[in-house]
Amino acid sequence: MWRSHIGDIVNAYKHFSDDTPDHKAVVVFDSMWHSTEKMARAVLEGFAMKGVPVKLYDLKVDHISDIMTDVLKAEYVAVGSPTINNQMLPTVASFLCYMKGLAPKNKKAFAFGSYGWGGQSAGLVNDGLEACKFQIVMEPVKVQYIPSEAFLKELSEKVAALD
């Protein structure tokens, strides 16, 4: 039973239980050959250019439960995956499934990814974000093979220009 700091505890509960997002962004990705990772870093740079505090999460390293603590209060969520076997990576699919189950509200989102020949992952990730009832603020961004410096710069600028 809590006997002290009651006001702090109640205020923390109110903060985490309301659906009002904080002005921050979360970029979540997995990558096979670093192309999607390069895109994720360009997205990160775009949010930084926009003045939005941003965190980058690599699904190979970061556990989805830890990521969700930031997603729940973020205004923006960007998710990236390369295409493998005409699909997104299983780690990204798992993350989207977990996120949908927690049903965060009031999010602006977009998908990105790289591919060799199919290119389906960015669209599939976008479908997952729509299933979460997020507001899609940019068409899925995809690049074949390795993104050029010009492509990455353009991606950063598109993110910086988001409303």
Rank of each mutant, 00 (worst) to 15 (best):
D30G: 11
L56Q: 02
K73W: 07
V10M: 15
K60A: 02
Y115L: 05
G113R: 08
V79C: 09
M39G: 00
A109M: 07
K38F: 01
Y76F: 15
L89K: 12
W117H: 09
V143N: 05
E154D: 15
V61Q: 09
L162G: 04
T20D: 13
V77C: 10
L129I: 06
H23R: 12
D8W: 12
I84C: 12
N106A: 11
V79R: 06
T36N: 03
C132M: 05
E75R: 10
V10A: 15
M99F: 05
S94H: 10
M32I: 13
I67H: 03
P21T: 14
V43I: 13
V61H: 08
E37Y: 06
S35I: 04
V61R: 12
K158W: 02
G128S: 01
D70T: 02
A93Q: 07
G101V: 06
I64A: 03
K38L: 08
V92D: 05
F112C: 05
V92K: 03
D163E: 14
Y57K: 01
A42C: 01
M49F: 08
L152M: 06
W33Q: 12
D18G: 13
V141Q: 15
K60G: 02
D8M: 14
F16Y: 14
V125T: 03
G123E: 12
L129A: 00
F110K: 00
A122S: 05
G123F: 10
L72W: 13
Q87I: 07
P140N: 10
F16H: 14
L162P: 01
P147Y: 00
K55A: 14
D22A: 14
A122Y: 03
I6C: 11
N126V: 07
A74S: 12
A25C: 03
G51T: 02
V26H: 00
L155K: 01
G7P: 06
V52S: 03
E154S: 14
I9D: 07
A48F: 04
Y13E: 14
E139T: 08
Y13V: 15
S4L: 11
I136P: 07
V77G: 04
I64P: 15
S121R: 04
S114H: 11
S114I: 08
Y13P: 11
L155N: 02
P21L: 07
H23D: 15
K133G: 07
W117V: 12
D58S: 09
M32C: 06
V10P: 13
V137P: 01
H63L: 08
T91W: 05
P147K: 05
C97W: 08
K158I: 02
P90G: 10
S148D: 00
D22R: 13
V10K: 15
G119K: 05
F95W: 06
V141C: 08
Y76V: 13
G46S: 02
Y145P: 04
Y98A: 08
I67S: 07
V79P: 10
A111P: 05
N85S: 13
V52E: 01
L44S: 13
E37V: 04
M68G: 03
Y145T: 11
